[in-house]
Design a protein around this nucleic acid. Structure first.
Ligand SMILES: [Mn+2]
Ligand SMILES: [Mn+2]
Ligand SMILES: [Mn+2]
Ligand SMILES: [Mn+2]
Lengths: 216, 216
DNA sequence: TTAATTTGTTAGAACAGTCTAACTTTTTAA
DNA sequence: TTAAAAAGTTAGACTGTTCTAACAAATTAA
């Protein structure tokens, strides 16, 4: 169907267009580390394949077909991540890079067995929802830890990033999905927050980190 | 290091050159379903990469570096096949195609976890030896079922092919690795053999099938 | 509202990997 | 030992994916 390269474009278009429904060539180029003219010519190609709707100088948007393909890739990625954590006992910080490769494996059986073994899971190791095999995905409105009111307690539901360096940082701070945290203090100057955590220790996070943690 | 395409060439060169130490462009072209000129230009490329030794009109042979790479790919392929059978409970007939993709996954961790989970296995689901992480491989001399003397009993140790259609055929006949079979009769006309098997049934195999079954 | 900046496009090149057509070398068989 | 067949090579082309250089459009700021 699509090449690995095309799949990676589709996935990025999906995630970058979440908010407004469209992405710009410049954003995609930055995300994929590819120059703008390359993105431009790929958009022409994906447009002829009816995966994106694209008019010169206008934003890029996925067609229904494109959305379906994006969700299918995201499903494979997240199922793979969870499989790597739950079945293969890898750390949540090391699975993303492997899943980037596994998501391109073309085999219904491989993924349906994962799904069965994991008992049809709803969330990946980073708290992100796993689209079902029909492409349905649970999108809940989320509160960032950087917006939690002082004094309130909440549970870490997900992280907005699954890059190793970020998760290594959370590991070092001792934070995991499911942990309850109480927001003790927010510094008005730089937005950094101090948390109370089950570890009994106080944890200090910069704004940059706190805003990537979703709580509920 | 190498592209997926290069890895596939290297793997094929390794298996086709097993017997004599070299392969010819025509053999490689047939195996890979690629035209001879394409193989020719790839050989030039692999030669500059010091993966093969290649002189015009001479056979192709892997360098030490090339052999090491081949064994590493074969290791990944066979580990993946066994993982798919033992951990993911797929059938031995459906794992080869998936392993053809998984073998190209670039992740030491992924494979070392498989190795651990499988307890450092020595053979894949088709009875083929799995090279160790240093590239050492157990090569035993094998007897083909088509050469077994009449009246003798032997154990199925491996199959020479792991294509789905062949294994589906063995499944239909009820044959598996580890099964004891007694050679009741060999037809001189076409080399087909009749076996006695634990299933109590007599099994008839054509020469074409029997010669792909290794016994010991 | 003009000028600077940012964003996007076109043109043209390059590399990986493949092909067909045409030619050469080697092997096989008459 | 020559002629036919098989195997291998070269030349040239094409697709996919990417790049740089140059230019055009849209946006932002003076
Ligand atoms: Mn991920
Ligand atoms: Mn994730
Ligand atoms: Mn195989
Ligand atoms: Mn095998």
């Amino acid at each position: 169907m699509d090449s690995l390269t095309e799949e990676n474009y589709i996935k990025s278009i999906y995630s970058l267009s979440q908010a407004t429904g469209e992405v710009f060539v410049s954003e995609l180029a930055k995300k994929l580390n590819i120059k703008q003219p390359s993105v431009n010519s790929m958009m022409k190609r994906l447009a002829t394949k009816k995966v994106v709707a694209y008019a010169p100088y206008k934003g890029i948007r996925l067609t229904e077909k494109g959305k379906k393909e994006a969700l299918s890739i995201i499903r494979r990625h997240r199922l793979a991540e969870l499989f790597l954590v739950k079945v293969m006992e890898l750390g949540w910080e090391e699975v993303h890079d492997i899943a980037e490769q596994l998501e391109h494996v073309d085999s219904k059986r491989f993924y349906s067995r994962m799904d069965e073994m994991l008992n049809f899971p709803k969330f990946d190791p980073h708290g992100e929802p796993i689209p079902d095999s029909n492409g349905k995905i649970h999108t809940q409105k989320r509160t960032s830890l950087s917006d939690l009111a002082e004094g309130l307690t909440a549970t870490i539901a997900a992280v907005a990033e699954d890059e190793k360096s970020f998760l290594d940082h959370l590991n070092a701070k001792g934070l995991q999905i499911g942990d309850a945290v109480t927001l003790k203090k927010r510094e008005p100057f730089d937005g950094s927050v101090t948390l109370r955590h089950k570890s009994k220790k106080e944890i200090l996070l910069t704004h940059q980190v706190a805003e990537r943690i979703w709580v509920e």
